[in-house]
């Protein structure tokens, strides 16, 4: 038994932090994830690109336990996410297991989804206090540090509706970070923003990308940004990874026709 734990610990550090093993997700007849195999290493920054409906966001939502899967196994830190072990078997996970697994992940939503009835600071302290049991003073101190990081200390006592979209999304990022996740999931974080507000949000994400031990999974249409911050780009099409590789390879010399067509459409929309 001791031996087994040691082996797991040893492998955990080199094993992928996220692993999709033949994962299937269907909405009715529509197959969103089609026996998807996908891995992310610890500390890796991965951007998922692809046409809409290709299953990009679903990958993040499955990881955040917002969408259950139909088949296959998702592993996070070597532990099955949607299943729990009973002896050698995997059985569907109960809520305690899901809560345990969720604590590793933080998510930033396209529509920010801040809590409208709480001040900015309270948005950052509520979950640490209520979920992690941190005392209020400490949570506030940490909240203010995070606000400083995203450049919004002067907005701490305002309500979300008093902020611009870009400011709200920066609060959204800070709120997710307040839970000290190992993996940050960004679901099209700038898609709902006016063009002039995109930059401030990307700058915050860029500064996070410099942190070595934070794993980042990003779905975005900002191709230039993706190229700058990502270790790897995955091109999704019809619920599978059609092509993946280093940013410079994917953006300058894509191999697949689908990838070429997609990149051409998004990078030179005028042609």
């Amino acid at each position: 038994m001791n031996n087994a734990t040691e082996i797991r610990d040893a492998t955990e550090s080199s094993d992928p932090i996220i692993k999709f093993d033949k994962v299937v997700k269907r909405f009715g007849d529509h197959v969103v994830l089609d026996e998807l195999d996908f891995e992310v290493q610890r500390g890796e920054k991965v951007t998922i690109i692809g046409p809409s409906g290709s299953g990009k966001s679903t990958v993040l939502r499955v990881l955040m336990t917002l969408e259950p899967i139909n088949d296959g196994v998702v592993y996070v830190g070597g532990e099955p996410l949607w299943h729990q072990r009973r002896g050698d078997e995997l059985i569907p996970a109960g809520e305690p297991h899901l809560r345990e697994m969720r604590s590793h992940m933080g998510m930033v939503f396209q529509q920010f989804n801040l809590f409208p009835h709480m001040t900015v600071l309270r948005n950052l302290t509520e979950a640490p206090v209520q979920v992690l049991g941190i005392n209020k003073a400490e949570a506030k101190k940490r909240g203010m540090e995070l606000l400083e990081m995203v450049g919004l200390t002067d907005q701490a006592d305002k309500y979300p509706h008093q902020l611009s979209g870009g400011q709200q999304q920066r609060v959204g990022i800070a709120r997710a970070l307040a839970m000290r996740p190992k993996v940050m999931l960004f679901d099209e974080p700038t898609s709902a923003l006016d063009p002039e507000l995109v930059g401030e949000v990307l700058n915050v994400i860029r500064s996070l990308a410099d942190e070595h031990d934070l794993t980042m999974l990003l779905v975005t249409h900002e191709m230039h940004f993706a190229r700058q911050v990502s270790d790897r780009i995955c091109f999704f099409d019809q619920g599978r990874i059609k092509e993946q590789g280093k940013p410079e390879d994917i953006f300058t010399a894509p191999k697949e026709e689908r990838t070429k067509a997609f990149l051409k459409a998004v990078l030179d929309p005028d042609d």
Binding site: T65, E95, M107, F109, Q130, V131, A176
Partner: peptide
């Protein structure tokens, strides 16, 4: 529904 999802992502229990 997004509020429900945000709360889930922050790991709130159902009651909280």
């Amino acid at each position: 529904r997004e509020q429900y999802e945000a709360a889930t992502a922050l790991n709130f229990t159902g009651r909280k």
